[in-house]
Amino acid sequence: MSGRVFLFGNDVDTDQLAPGEYMKGGIEAIAAHCLEGIRPDFAKTVKPGDVVVAGTNFGMGSSREQAAEALKRLGVAGVVARSFAGIFYRNAINLGLPVMIANDLAGVEDGAAADLDIAAGELRLPGKTVPLEPLPDNLKAMLADGGLVPHLKKRFAAQG
């Protein structure tokens, strides 16, 4: 398994993800303080490939794109949640941060080894596989390319 679970509750908001006081400091500064209000050591301990798992309405609050960008910058493999706030969901996909909906997260423990497989639509844990709602092909392709802009670049390059 390539990562670990960082477990959060419901209603994680954009001000937790991208704290307002660091908004002027650029994405590095924002990422360094990502989620510190709920989990002070998050930015220091999270590693590339780790998976953020949360309850309902993840990313509620403002439309700031940095909320998704901060998680991406920290190398998070993706966010698995019961539901997402609409604008955060849009921003995440467009920035290339996988956001996956799981209907049942019972038994998922903080710190557990985890593998997020977007293509298969699964969150694999030791002795357990959590099914994720499949993404449509167009969004899968956009995520695979790293977000909207790289996706479009590829598309225009292909057209010559």
Partner: peptide, 10 residues
Amino acid sequence: GATEMAGVLA
């Protein structure tokens, strides 16, 4: 936002 708007304009 501006990034998505650029995508639409393109």
